[in-house]
């Protein structure tokens, strides 16, 4: 198999790699905010339970969570895993895991906001929701962007874990070629692909940071 053939074959999996990447962000970013708010709830039960869940999601390997989501239903209810549901299992596991990380980032950002911002808004008559959505959250987004960038870059690389479920994204295809051709080359190609994708991510995120650079 030629190098170009390998690249062509692996490129076919890039769509699936991107699907994991974008769907995970789509669900985990809002979910993370919700989890952060639950984590900061004044209700002790809610905050304790949420903290325990975050701790579990951050303290165990993503690969185990992936396997648990994919095969858990089979062992528990005898449900069979269909090919179509592989992506579903991956998105559920990834979204939960990343939501836990994002939640802690959001929480750090929210807790770093000076109390004076809340007080100024309160005196002007802003409701709690208005204060959060208009005054606090936009500033939090700016503050946490560098940490979010780190997670997003990790996510690009983590998509390779889908091979655990033999979901044929770019890396799994490469791994298959590597086995059948007894070649190391597919791993080099995969490395280049991830590096290129992360260059795009880094560029996009720095554009975001710049667009929020109009204030301090």
């Amino acid at each position: 198999m030629t190098l170009t053939a390998m690249i062509a074959k692996m490129s076919e999996g890039l769509g699936r790699t991107c699907a994991i990447f974008f769907l995970t962000l789509l669900f985990s970013l809002p979910l993370g905010l919700l989890v952060a708010l639950l984590r900061m709830s004044k209700n002790r039960l809610v905050s304790t339970v949420t903290r325990a869940i975050i701790s579990f999601l951050r303290g165990t390997p993503l690969m185990l969570q992936l396997i648990a989501v994919a095969y858990g239903p089979f062992y528990l209810f005898g449900a069979t895993l269909l090919v179509k549901q592989k992506l579903l299992a991956i998105i559920i596991a990834f979204s939960l895991n990343y939501a836990a990380y994002f939640a802690e980032i959001y929480r750090g950002g929210i807790e770093s906001m000076p109390v004076g911002q809340y007080e100024a808004a309160a005196v002007l008559g802003y409701s709690r929701t208005q204060t959060f959505m208009r005054i606090i959250l936009p500033q939090v987004v700016k503050r946490i962007l560098p940490s979010v960038t780190n997670e997003v870059i990790t996510l690009v690389k983590d998509t390779s874990m889908a091979f655990t479920l033999a979901y044929m994204e770019m890396f799994s295809i490469g791994k298959q070629i590597a086995t059948s051709q007894s070649s190391f080359l597919p791993f080099v190609i995969a490395g280049v692909f991830y590096y290129l994708m992360n260059s795009v991510v880094a560029f996009a995120m720095s554009r975001c940071e710049k667009s929020l650079g109009y204030y301090r």
Binding site: A120, L124, G125
Partner: peptide, 29 residues
């Protein structure tokens, strides 16, 4: 809405322009 408070350390909204700091509360609230 009967009273206003001016803080020692201003507490302006840093992500709003001067004009928006002044206009948003009356329009929104």
């Amino acid at each position: 809405s009967c009273f206003g408070l001016v803080f020692q350390n201003f507490n302006l909204f840093p992500h709003y322009s001067v004009l928006k700091n002044i206009t948003e509360p009356p329009m929104l609230i």
